[in-house]
Simulated assay, not measured.
Amino acid sequence: MSEAAGFRLERLRGLRASLVPHDWAWAADNADAIADNWERRRAARPSLFDGRVLLASAWRIAEGICEVAFFETGFARFLAHRDAGFPDRSVANAFAAIVPCGADGAAILGRMGIHTANAGQVYFPCGTPDPSDIRGEAEVDLAGSAAREFREETGVELPAEAPEAWLLLEGGGQLAFLRPVRFPEDAASLATRMEAYRRTEASPELDSFVIARGAEDLGSERMPGFIEAYFRLAHAADAVD
């Protein structure tokens, strides 16, 4: 296990997630603040939608396997909790993301569009899990969520032979499950392919792609903490087999 930028990194042997009932006391106790925060956010970005998302209420690692319990809640609640600095430490923003790497070892990140809740931030294509990631009655498909978000935002399919190896970056109210994947072309060619797809979208979530070999290529003001931690602790060239 390694630590940097307020995050700790662990390499995982496996990942399991399930949906459980959870009475989120913090959200009930802060209903007025949540409503005020949503009104402020919507005034700035009217396209925001209070859909359903999944947050983590419990997690543990045993023998390299991370087990995560999720519950369903509203996006406005999640956003208020995040904007407040994740005051309820029993609840985390848990999400999975593909880390796309070119054959030259550089990683590709997306810059969020101005109409999104994270406008201008630069990170790997990903999203908070939602009910579409539930399989059967209670399984949460984090691997499928990562692949879906990646495909929706880049138009690129994962190589069939890519190993499914996960890294967990935990810190700052987040559980970032990252799967580094190396593609056969160099990063510039891969980014060009992603950009060509982005330009076909009527309302793309991303406004551009960024190639980086380290945190110094991004600029700290637009870089979430888990991205800085990734480049410090598991640089793409070293994290991909």
Results as ranks from 00 to 15, higher is better:
residue 211 I to K: 08
residue 189 S to R: 13
residue 198 R to P: 05
residue 200 T to P: 03
residue 193 R to H: 06
residue 185 E to K: 07
residue 197 Y to M: 05
residue 200 T to K: 12
residue 198 R to S: 01
residue 197 Y to R: 08
residue 182 R to S: 12
residue 179 R to V: 13
residue 208 S to K: 11
residue 211 I to M: 13
residue 211 I to Q: 11
residue 192 T to D: 13
residue 213 R to W: 03
residue 218 L to N: 02
residue 215 A to P: 14
residue 199 R to N: 10
residue 180 P to L: 01
residue 208 S to A: 15
residue 199 R to E: 10
residue 179 R to F: 13
residue 206 L to N: 13
residue 201 E to R: 15
residue 182 R to C: 10
residue 210 V to D: 01
residue 206 L to E: 04
residue 184 P to A: 09
residue 220 S to I: 15
residue 211 I to S: 06
residue 179 R to K: 13
residue 206 L to W: 00
residue 219 G to V: 07
residue 181 V to K: 05
residue 192 T to N: 09
residue 208 S to W: 03
residue 193 R to L: 06
residue 215 A to H: 06
residue 196 A to H: 03
residue 220 S to V: 15
residue 215 A to C: 02
residue 203 S to R: 12
residue 215 A to T: 06
residue 194 M to L: 05
residue 196 A to M: 04
residue 201 E to H: 08
residue 199 R to F: 05
residue 189 S to C: 10
residue 206 L to V: 01
residue 217 D to K: 08
residue 194 M to V: 05
residue 188 A to W: 08
residue 214 G to S: 15
residue 190 L to Q: 05
residue 217 D to I: 05
residue 219 G to L: 03
residue 184 P to N: 10
residue 217 D to V: 02
residue 189 S to A: 14
residue 198 R to F: 01
residue 200 T to H: 07
residue 219 G to F: 05
residue 192 T to G: 13
residue 203 S to C: 07
residue 191 A to R: 14
residue 192 T to V: 07
residue 189 S to F: 02
residue 210 V to R: 07
residue 189 S to Q: 11
residue 194 M to Q: 10
residue 201 E to M: 14
residue 213 R to C: 02
residue 210 V to N: 00
residue 203 S to W: 09
residue 186 D to A: 10
residue 179 R to Q: 14
residue 181 V to D: 09
residue 212 A to C: 01
residue 181 V to L: 07
